[in-house]
């Protein structure tokens, strides 16, 4: 049915609003990307592109790849990128697995102490993390986990939020009858978990992977505390350290940030559909 005039007006209005919002959102990005190509002298001389005698009144020749090359040559950026990939991917995969297992246990079984544990999980959601940093640091030392990737990854494996999301997802999407018939067929519990349950909550897996990957990728406080060797530091810390004492090279920070955004943006595109439908499956019903 072809839209009538008032509907078309409404649609144009909608498009206009969306475009306005997208522009507002994108302006800082544009600034960021342009900044990555500016030298430090030029960085604040003009708002976006440096003015000059080039095409359209812009000094195209003053834009440079220097910031990027410096990052890889003078700083250890390729190593930092490798570290970030490692930490973020391993953390997100293990964290998702732990959360899915925990959510499964709480959703599809009845056992003594279930409500106690559920309350514990829920309360873990409301504890301010900053409260625990000091004690956690000492604890890591006593366990010998300082200056190792395990010290970063292990504490992330108690994801209360994740357990909560997966519990909701499984309550909604995993029918008990399916589980029972699998058991009757002689499947072990683990086999059921991996072959039956996980595929059913596939969207939630995608969603939670995205959330944890993003958080681990951008986290710059924890790695600085736990890791002592410069070689092990991830991108987030490397970019944070670009802020100097006497001098801050904004061009390099922009370049570093641009590099840092590309992988997560790619991941978002890959997981987009599931990210959204996964949260549907986790919709709270009270």
């Amino acid at each position: 049915m072809k839209p009538n005039l008032s509907e078309r007006l409404l649609r144009s209005l909608c498009y206009a609003l969306i475009l306005v919002w997208c522009c507002v959102t994108l302006v800082p990005f544009v600034w960021l990307v342009i900044g990555a190509f500016k030298t430090s002298e030029d960085f604040f001389s003009s708002l976006f592109l440096p003015a000059g005698e080039g095409f359209l009144g812009i000094a195209w020749d003053r834009l440079t790849w220097n910031n990027f090359s410096k990052l890889f040559i003078e700083f250890d950026f390729s190593n930092n990128i490798l570290n970030s990939f490692f930490i973020a991917s391993v953390t997100s995969l293990l964290s998702t697995l732990t959360a899915a297992m925990g959510g499964f246990a709480l959703a599809k079984y009845n056992f003594r102490g279930q409500s106690v544990i559920t309350v514990i999980v829920l309360s873990a959601l409301v504890i301010p993390h900053t409260l625990l940093i000091a004690s956690q640091y000492q604890l890591l030392h006593y366990l010998g986990l300082l200056n190792s990737y395990s010290g970063l990854i292990l504490p992330a494996l108690s994801p209360a939020f994740g357990v909560f999301l997966f519990r909701q997802a499984m309550l909604n999407s995993v029918p008990n009858e399916l589980l029972d018939s699998a058991r009757v067929d002689g499947c072990g519990e683990f086999r059921i978990f991996f072959s039956v349950v996980l595929p059913l909550v596939r969207p939630m897996i995608g969603a939670y992977l995205m959330i944890t990957f993003l958080y681990a990728w951008n986290n710059f406080i924890n790695p600085q505390i736990v890791l002592q060797d410069a070689e092990m530091l991830p991108l987030s810390v490397a970019v944070a350290q670009l802020r100097g004492l006497y001098l801050t090279d904004y061009g390099m920070i922009s370049a570093g940030t641009v590099i840092s955004i590309l992988p997560v943006a790619l991941l978002f595109l890959l997981l987009q559909k599931e990210f959204i439908s996964g949260l549907t499956a986790g919709a709270v019903k009270g």
Partner: peptide, 18 residues
């Protein structure tokens, strides 16, 4: 959707500087 979501992808450091 990607555009609207994208600010969440930048780390807090740069957003703070920005």
């Amino acid at each position: 959707r990607l555009i609207v979501f994208s600010p969440a992808l930048i780390g807090t450091i740069f957003v703070g500087v920005l």
